[in-house]
Amino acid sequence: MRIITEAARWAIPFLLFFIPLYAHFRKVPVYETFVEGAEDGFKTAVKIIPFLIGMLVSIRIFVDSGALRFFIELCRPFFDKMGWNPDLLGIIPLAVMRPLSGSGALGVATQLIHQYGPDSFIGRLASTLQGSTDTTFFVLAVYFGSVGIKKHRYALKVGLVADAMGLFASIWIVTKVFG
């Protein structure tokens, strides 16, 4: 475990040290080349703005209006009927938020961890779920937006299927390990 933490700590300084040094030995004009590449960063960041705003506006209205909470409440009787652990209801806001918004999900996870306690079932489940998948809608909007892809084909389906699997796997493993 320590080794991995250390590796993460050293990775960026190492890259910043090693790549320019190696490039210099290969007779690359380091400063000019760096600036030339950095210019692209600016252009790419500007290019993704409309896609980002489009996604964020729709998601934000959906979440802030209470529509998300409304749909979660709709799920409640279904959970009762299925005879599932009612504790699991606590995780739904995070499960729905996770693919939509990174900062939103972190907010919900933090709130759950404080509300139920970090070492409770929901606290552990929220921690596991938060770390196990990325924000599908954000990645989709930004990555496709940056190169002007408008037809996503089956990309969203793949992302959401993986998110659902992440949720079920989290519930299963947390129950198994800590249950």
Binding site: I19, Y22, V28, G37, A38, G41
Partner: peptide
């Protein structure tokens, strides 16, 4: 983005 794409360009030119 600018920082990493700058470093990327160096790595690219150096053949890394």
């Amino acid at each position: 983005m600018s920082l990493w794409l700058g470093i990327m360009r160096l790595a690219e030119k150096a053949g890394l």
